[in-house]
Design a protein around this nucleic acid. Structure first.
Length: 553
RNA sequence: GCCCUCGUAGCUCAGGGGAUAGAGCACCGGUUUCCUAAACCGGGUGUCGCAUGUUCGAUUCAUGCCGGGGGCACCA
């Protein structure tokens, strides 16, 4: 990545300046290379002279001059200048731009990927929707964000595993089963008696009906408790299948599905509680077993085992996270909805209590999704009168717009999802804007093929690409590795949507100013290569977003 | 009350210790004998919520306040 090259360049220059005695300062550990906001300030800039000024006892501008004197002049640099209060501005040469074009052609689908300095084994857990009902729209956001983040982290060289945690144990499963049982009996004419906190949704009746359809009334003979037990198992499987189907529709896949029940079955809960007990981190009070989470930064201590002998969800989560650590991940990333943020401190406290290390667990709290249609909030589905499900949204707007829209905002901002906009096939809709650029390029390439021209890099003379819009497009394309790397380290896949739009804009501008296929064969080849490279980069970025790159629209 | 998060253009938002703070939409006007007009070009807006602090430099970091959203179970 170019930033690293520039940082090394300065580092080497500084070393020589220090060795020669012209500079009296310690060698800084890191050199910041930033992108100036103002284009006239060059492609990249360093503030190192201002940083070192105090220690070196020199005014920043003079110091910058000294540094520049000792700098190498690699061929990728066109110009180095001092500006403003002491910035060192770099302008890249056209050779650098054409080199990156060559690179795009050579690397193809791999262009934009990179290798982080310290590759980690990362597990990312997201969605983990409770298997007691259909996924709602918020789950869709975490599916889109989580899947994209997983792709992003892998693209910069981490070893990534995605996981869906299935809460298939405990009270909610009992209530779920009892709810289905109540609906089942209702179908056979009994009065409806939903359990306390029972599930209300219409899908419960659907599940009950399905049981009636396949097995008839044979469960009526069972006691209600046995019906509930039977149905919770059965209905849970059904719901989980449904969840999996919805995720497939979103093109989101998980490397592993982890069942909470297996923790209980394998004695993992008592194991972790014993572990914490041995470290003297638990105590009994009011009949319950508590974990001293306050000692690790929580607001109050938390219950592990209720007075009635039942473990809490928190206890299961501790066992689960302990299990994850045992599986050898360097980093655990959890994506949770904002409604779970109050839970963060205690889980982090538990991680510390278990000695898992300060930064082992990273919890991304995502704000909620609000549906809008034509400026009006949409809360309930017109069809069912209940919460709009993710399935309904996907059926309505389609996968590509859904994934793109879910990704458009940073996770810590609430997302207003405009259904009408997502459906509209106009320039207002960013997903179409980007896809249209890709389709348009494919069309140009088809046209060129008809003219017996094909974009083969070898024959292209990139020096011919000197138009301002060509340069701008090349600069945009050359940015991919650093944009992707920064998006990954900031856990900010939404930046990809902005980048995709930037490339598309640069391309559309170029298209209107430069004719690709013309009588000038050399120029045509050069431009076809540029256009093909643009196609490749858009495709790669859209892949990271999880959106298709259509050949025709 | 406590905790988290947001507050940037008319609207939706991006950005982020630096040099003149960006994009899309909306609004007005223009572009097609030519590779996709789902496109492009031109036109203008900001006390970056307020205050204090840290810094050579703060819209960005810290603290407080104000305002929006969310959360504060022996629920999951």
């Amino acid at each position: 990545m170019i930033e690293n090259n520039l940082a090394d360049l300065i580092q080497n220059g500084l070393r020589r300046a220090i060795d020669s005695g012209h500079l009296k300062t310690a060698l800084p550990r890191t050199i910041e290379i930033e992108r100036p906001r103002e284009k006239s300030h060059g492609d990249w800039a360093s503030n190192i002279a201002m940083i070192l000024a105090k220690e070196a006892r020199q005014p920043p501008r003079a110091l910058a001059e000294t540094i520049i004197e000792y700098l190498d002049k690699p061929d990728y640099l066109a110009e180095v200048e001092i500006a403003g209060p002491g910035f060192i501005n770099f302008r890249l040469s056209s050779k650098w731009l054409s080199d990156s074009l060559t690179q795009i052609c050579e690397l193809g689908d791999a262009y934009g990927r990179s290798e982080v300095e310290n590759p980690q084994k990362i597990q990312i857990e997201f969605v983990s929707a409770n298997p007691v009902g259909p996924m709602h729209v918020g789950h869709g956001r975490w599916a889109a964000v989580g899947d994209s983040l997983a792709r992003l982290l892998a693209a910069v060289g981490h070893q990534v595993e995605s996981e869906f945690y299935i809460n298939d144990w405990g009270n909610q499963m009992r209530i779920f089963g009892a709810s289905v049982a109540a609906r089942y009996r209702e179908i056979f004419g009994e009065a409806l008696e939903l359990p306390e906190d029972g599930y209300q949704g219409h899908y419960i009746t659907d599940i009950a009906q399905e049981i009636v359809d396949t097995d008839g009334d044979k469960y009526l003979r069972l006691k209600p408790e046995d019906q509930s037990a039977e149905f919770s198992k059965r209905a849970y499987k059904q719901v989980l299948e449904h969840i999996k189907k919805t995720l497939v529709a979103m093109d989101v896949s998980f490397d592993s599905w982890f069942s909470e029940s297996t923790l209980h079955e394998r004695g993992k809960l008592s194991e972790s509680m014993e572990f914490l007990d041995q470290k003297d981190l638990t105590y009994r009070s009011e009949g319950a077993l508590w974990l001293k989470t306050v000692d690790f930064g929580d607001d109050k201590d938390r219950v592990l085992m209720r007075a009635n002998g039942e473990p809490t969800y928190f206890a299961a989560d501790i066992a689960y996270h302990r299990e994850k650590v045992e599986r050898g991940f360097d980093k655990l990333i959890n994506i949770w909805g904002a409604d779970h943020h109050g839970y963060v401190k205690r889980v982090q406290a538990a991680m510390t209590a278990m000695g898992a290390g300060e930064n082992r667990l990273e919890i991304i709290i995502g704000q909620l999704v609000n549906l809008f249609s034509g400026g009006k909030a949409v809360r309930m589905s017109k069809r069912t009168g209940e919460m709009v499900t993710l399935d309904e949204l996907l059926a309505d707007v389609g996968r590509d717009p859904a994934r793109y829209f879910f990704l458009m905002r940073g996770t810590d901002t609430a997302l207003d999802f405009d259904i009408e906009l997502a459906k509209s096939q106009t320039s207002e809709n960013p997903v179409y804007y980007v896809q249209y650029a890709h389709a348009r390029i494919c069309s140009i390439l088809r046209h060129a093929a008809d003219q017996k021209l094909t974009p083969i890099g070898k024959k292209a003379n990139f020096n011919l690409l000197a138009h301002e819009s060509e340069m701008a497009l090349m600069r945009e394309l050359a940015d991919a590795p650093s944009i992707i790397a920064r998006a990954a380290s900031a856990r900010a896949p939404h930046r990809l949507t902005k980048y995709a739009q930037d490339i598309a804009a640069a391309f559309h501008q170029f298209y209107h100013q430069c004719r690709v296929v013309s009588d000038d064969e050399d120029l045509s080849f050069a431009r076809l290569t540029l256009v093909d490279a643009t196609r490749q980069v858009i495709k790669n970025v859209l892949w990271l977003i999880g959106v298709s790159a259509p050949q025709k629209m």
